[in-house]
Amino acid sequence: MNRFVAADPGKCIGCRTCEIACAMAHRPDGSTEALAPTNFEPRIRVIKTATVSTAVMCHHCEDAPCLNACPEGAIVYRADSVQVDQSRCVGCKNCVMACPFGVMEVITVPAVKSIAGIQVSAGVKARAHKCDLCIDRAAGQACVGACPTNALRLVDEASLQQSLAELRERTAIAAIAV
């Protein structure tokens, strides 16, 4: 089963700590310094309506519409998650249209080519941009670690099975009470 980060609206206070944690975790230097409105691209977004505050991000679907829609085979299942092979992404936005949760974006970053050891600008490179579960980060998912109210958690097969088992047990006890 693919893993995913789940948010609990009953604990979210809408503070956006997760957004900064995400943006920071995906900066090559891990520093806040270069962070600016123009390059602030968190893969998790806090949404506030009249009645709800919560974070939304990729569900890492089992039969992922984004993956199915990608003509380039740039979206793949890897490490129990849905990942993007950025080298293959052409920025066609099929994945953006296909995602039912609105959590896939296509962004562009400056592209550079290396010619005879010299870095030269090569226009822009498109990227399908979404939660990658921080798979390259030793400390795990940055948003989960940073949330001040513990509103975010990583759900994997084992933890899902455990909560399902608890729910079933509660259902059984409730049946006796009736």
Partner: peptide, 11 residues
């Protein structure tokens, strides 16, 4: 625990 100001408000 820390919030966003605690975590990212040092620079």
């Amino acid at each position: 625990r820390l919030c966003l100001k605690g975590l990212y408000g040092y620079d």
